[in-house]
């Protein structure tokens, strides 16, 4: 057996960089750290206005649907599982498993987006909560809309990677590309974990 064939890839150490971390991964972590601050400000804004709601603000508890949001949360958690399995699959060079995992992640991402569109439509047309008619609407739609935009970007990225996997150019050596995409997707999930608690669940206490 040749030395190349017997070699195995170490996905947690890159000797070609001074940090031992692949540059793409380092870039993604730096971006996610900055995105933390972005979402931190949006969540703070929402919570601040919830501290002192102006007169006429509709009670959020009557507007929100905890059942739908819990379902969305569950779906996003499961999509994170499928994304982790996709990264695991490409690190083992298993393209078939990668494709199925990516497809399932995209499917779950689309369900989440569908739930969000349904929720927004319900708020606007049934509950008469729009982005301009109250501060609750402004902060809520800005925060959850920005998160939804992140999910949409993730779904597009995942779809691109799925199509790219059929070209035959995606191999185990390129697993860092899938891993970076996975980091982004998991970040979208952890942001939702915070939003679910801070924006939705706190209203029910």
């Amino acid at each position: 057996m040749s030395s190349t064939a017997a070699a195995t890839l170490n996905h947690h150490h890159d000797p070609t960089t001074s940090t031992g971390i692949a540059n793409k991964k380092l870039l993604m972590w730096a971006f996610l750290a900055s995105d933390c601050m972005f979402f931190g400000c949006l969540i703070s804004t929402h919570l601040i206005y919830r501290l002192h709601p102006p007169p006429g603000t509709p009670p959020a508890r009557e507007v929100f649907s905890i059942e739908l949001t819990s379902f969305s949360t569950f779906i996003l958690l499961m999509s994170s599982l499928m994304m982790a399995l996709a990264v695991n699959a490409i690190q083992k060079g298993n393209l078939k498993s990668l494709r199925w995992s990516l497809l399932t992640t995209i499917f779950f991402g689309c369900i989440f987006l569908g739930c969000q569109v349904y929720e927004f439509r319900n708020f606007v047309f049934e509950k008469h909560l729009t982005i301009t008619n109250s501060i609750l609407g402004t902060t809520f739609f800005t925060l959850t809309g920005t998160h939804g935009l992140h999910v949409l970007i993730g779904v597009i990225w995942l779809s691109g990677m799925l199509l790219y996997s059929f070209t035959g150019r995606l191999t185990e050596k390129d697993s860092i590309d899938v891993e970076s995409m996975g980091l982004y997707w998991h970040f979208v999930d952890i942001v939702w974990i915070v939003i679910f608690t801070a924006v939705y669940l706190l209203e029910y206490i």
């Binding site: 380092l26 972590w29 750290a33 933390c36 994170s80 982790a84 998991h186 999930d189």
Partner: peptide, 29 residues
């Protein structure tokens, strides 16, 4: 999620430090 799904548990500590810098700044703000 961050330590298992995002592999921080198995990655270099610098990734954890980098992410927590952003997290602490955001949390502090």
């Amino acid at each position: 999620v961050i330590f298992y799904f995002m592999h921080l548990r198995w990655d270099k500590a610098f990734c954890t430090i980098l992410f927590f810098i952003g997290l602490i700044l955001a949390g502090g703000t």
